[in-house]
Design a protein around this nucleic acid. Structure first.
Length: 722
RNA sequence: GGCCGGUUAGCUCAGUUGGCAAGAGCGCUUCGUUCACAUCGAAGAGGUCGGGGGUUCAAAUCCCUCACCGGCCACCA
């Protein structure tokens, strides 16, 4: 053993050894308890970042459960990450002075495919460098044919039960990215703006005869107004309800209506109603049969339904023009400063334009109801528990889920519209005829699924699509039912991921997972926090505070990085990360190595002096025995409750400050016979500590174990039986 | 406006059934080390555990309240 632990000499070799020996390959074994985790599939469009290194939590669980004798499965995969990837790829194109419009769809798809394959391989080798005990024989990709088929089948099932529907509605549309989004992709930002008060007169030529004044932050949308609304109990306007006013510039009459959603305290208490460009107004228009006039198009420009001078103008230009016109007409009553929240695209930051559009939606209410039951009745447990409340809140507040994306990278929505029957049908395979009229006059849609629609199916889709042959290990008791990988490992034991994707992913997996399999997709949800920089700021390229996990591994080894992410942290809380933390853990790992080295050197000495009296009652030995027993008991309890950080602190403290600083120092003072005696037991205690540490620091513990046990792997050991 | 966190040593943070004399990492001071490890050891400085009130034999830990910081969410145009 070298005097210093040098991770670069061991890590790659060890991982190759694990992988070559198929140690991570899970099998069906009826005699054992299954323990399964599906790795949240990283996006196959970029390198791993520190957030991905947090999956070390999963590796700890997997290796720990392997250690206590469970049959473990940790299944890796990659996400095609639809819109995200297309966005990244377009940036690449832009650097080359090109855009997506320079290629036809098929070629573009193929280009992105190749780009993703390359990234995927890179990403997977990075997962290996982190030491993750993933079963590579079962790896899946969200665009694997068999997965795609399942995704489409799920959609068909939703459609058949009336839970997927096609509808024209106001959706969040980014005119820059050219696609619609679900509510979750909209980021609201505080912006300083103006609130304009506009008079809608009774008589166009005689504003002095009065009218009704409305307040708005978006005057340009008045061109699409269909009514003015007031609160039904508002005394100021009660006698005006039902009367008509003139819509300036457009020069037409619109009605004053009464609706509960109007807040009498805001502005003038009268609100302009623009059904085509505001979701609240859209709903109001439905209630009052108002109809709509779309004045903004998909490119963010004014449509031909506006007066000619506005047509083709961008929204902000149109706004200025409208204000100018109103001023000329003497109808702009006043303007005041106003801070309000504006919806922006989570990716490009552009203001989201609410537009009426036809999209596919998932009806959430019935799905959410079932999901809630699973959580409330603790069929699914959430760790840490504060997220239970948050998850339930979400399940109560989801709107219907817009799953259409107007992009090419993804799974095509397998929906077809029959021009004869005038209705939609869904077909998993490419259809030859309409199922209703048996003719072939139908068209398909060119939109793809929201990538989360496929991720929502990941736990069951990955397991259902496993090749079953030769993976069985039939138990000795032949009467046991023969089970498939899916039956054996589903529902999975744990879903571990960052709390930031709770509504995007976790909630949807529960809803869709239960819908398809009638079982929860997992029994436990464990949520980790975000990795921030030393000062608690978000890591970002622009701030230059990003720590690259691979660089850290090069410098200090994977074990040090892993421990630094766990040591003295709180599950579910963000962690402030720094290189210093890794250095501290690198030192600890070297300490562990050197304790081993010391024991190993003394072992030679022991063998040379093999004649010694047995003395098991030495006080130092008894003290050690007692303390170790206590440590092991605490460790097991903590690990079973997902309390990994305290378990690691416990081991750290015991190994360094008790075993090394106290017991080893004391042992040096012993007489020779006692010394030999003591070291015999000390070695056993130490090896047990290595086992307990192994889930956290797999490489160094394996390296030492192989020295002590002449090439045997620590991964296959059983903690209880040692 | 709703909800959820946080406030403990100079810095970053642990401290879950309330109880041994308040901890760790990094930093700092002094000393030591041919004999496993300087990626080391020994000793030490440094904290009114945000303020106030309450429950208790006992509270950093439970309850109430206030202050400050942070996060997530919401159709007030």
């Amino acid at each position: 053993m070298e005097p210093k632990y040098q991770p670069e000499l061991h890590e790659e070799k060890i991982y190759q050894f694990w992988e070559k020996s198929n140690l991570f390959e899970a099998k069906v074994d009826q005699k054992k308890k299954p323990f399964s985790i599906i790795l949240p599939p990283p996006n196959a469009n970029a390198d791993l970042h520190l957030g991905h290194a947090m999956y070390v939590y999963e590796d700890i669980m997997i290796r720990f459960h392997r250690l206590i004798g469970d049959e473990v499965l940790w299944l890796p995969g990659a996400d095609h990450a639809g819109f995200e990837t297309q966005f990244v790829f377009e940036k690449h194109l832009k650097k080359q002075g090109k855009s997506r419009f320079d290629f036809d769809e098929g070629i573009l798809f193929k280009m992105i495919w190749d780009f993703v394959q390359e990234n995927r391989n890179k990403m997977e080798s990075q997962l290996r460098r982190l030491g993750f005990a993933l079963d590579w024989s079962k790896r899946k990709f969200t665009l694997d044919n068999d997965v795609v088929k399942i995704v489409k089948e799920t959609f068909k099932k939703l459609f058949d039960q009336g839970l997927a529907y096609y509808d024209k509605a106001i959706v969040n549309y980014c005119v820059n990215c050219g696609t619609s989004f679900s509510d979750l992709e909209v980021v609201y930002q505080e912006k300083k703006g103006k609130l304009w008060y506009i008079l809608y007169p009774f008589e166009l030529m005689h504003p002095e005869k009065g009218g009704i004044t409305v307040a708005t932050t978006r005057p340009e949308t008045m061109l699409g107004d269909m009514a003015v609304a007031v609160h039904p109990k508002d005394k100021r306007y009660k006698n005006l309800i039902g009367k008509a006013v003139n819509l300036p510039i457009v020069n037409c009459g619109i009605k004053i209506i009464a609706d509960e959603v109007v807040d009498p305290k805001f502005g003038t208490g009268a609100v302009k109603v623009t059904p085509a460009h505001d979701p609240t107004d859209w709903e109001m228009a439905k209630r009052h049969n108002l109809g709509l006039r779309q004045v903004i198009d998909m490119e963010g420009k004014m449509t031909i339904l506006t007066p000619q001078e506005f047509q083709g103008k961008k929204v902000l230009e149109a706004r200025e023009l409208v204000l100018q016109k109103l001023k000329e007409l003497g109808l702009l009553v006043k303007e005041e400063n106003h801070t309000h929240r504006v919806g922006t695209c989570y990716k490009c930051g552009q203001v989201i334009e609410p537009l009426p559009m036809e999209n596919w939606f998932i009806k959430i209410k019935p799905l959410a109801k079932k999901a809630k039951e699973l959580i409330v009745r603790e069929k699914i447990k959430i760790y840490p528990k504060k997220f239970k409340k948050i998850l339930l809140w979400w399940l109560d507040h989801f709107h219907d889920w817009n799953i259409s994306r107007q992009i090419i990278w993804g799974i095509k929505i397998p929906a077809y519209y029959c021009n004869i029957c005038k209705r939609w049908f869904v077909s998993v395979e490419t259809p030859k005829k309409c199922p209703y009229c048996q003719k072939n006059h139908f068209v398909s849609v060119s939109t793809t699924f929201d990538t989360w629609f496929s991720s929502a199916q990941w736990p069951f889709a990955t397991l259902m699509t496993q090749k079953e042959n030769s993976k069985f290990q039939i138990s000795n008791f032949k009467k046991e039912p023969r089970k498939t990988i899916f039956e054996y490992f589903y529902p999975t034991t744990v879903m571990e991921t960052g709390y930031d994707i709770l509504p995007w992913w976790v909630a949807r997996m529960i809803m869709i997972g239960y819908f398809v399999t009638k079982k929860p997709p997992f029994f436990n949800v464990v949520l980790h926090g975000l990795v921030r920089d030393k000062k608690g700021q978000k890591m970002s390229k622009s701030k230059g505070n990003v720590i690259n996990p691979m660089e850290m591994i090069d410098k200090y080894g994977a074990d040090a990085l892993r421990l630094a992410l766990i040591y003295e942290t709180t599950l579910g809380a963000d962690i402030n990360f720094s290189e210093e933390r890794i250095i501290g853990m690198r030192n600890f790992i070297n300490k562990v190595w050197n304790i081993g080295r010391f024991i190993y050197l003394n072992r030679e000495f022991k063998i040379q002096n093999s004649k010694f009296k047995i003395n098991n009652k030495m006080s130092l030995l008894l003290k050690l025995e007692k303390e170790f027993k206590e440590i092991k008991r605490k460790y097991l309890r903590l690990m079973k409750n997902y309390r990994f950080s305290p378990a690691l602190v416990l081991l750290h403290n015991f190994l360094w400050h008790h075993l090394a600083d106290f017991y080893i120092e004391e042992s040096k003072k012993l007489e020779e016979n006692d010394k030999i005696n003591f070291f015999t037991r000390l070695e056993e205690v130490y090896l047990n500590c290595l086992l307990m540490l192994h889930p956290f620091a797999p490489f160094v513990t394996e390296a030492i174990w192989q020295v002590f046990k002449k090439g045997e792997s620590i991964y296959q050991q059983n903690l209880i039986s040692v």
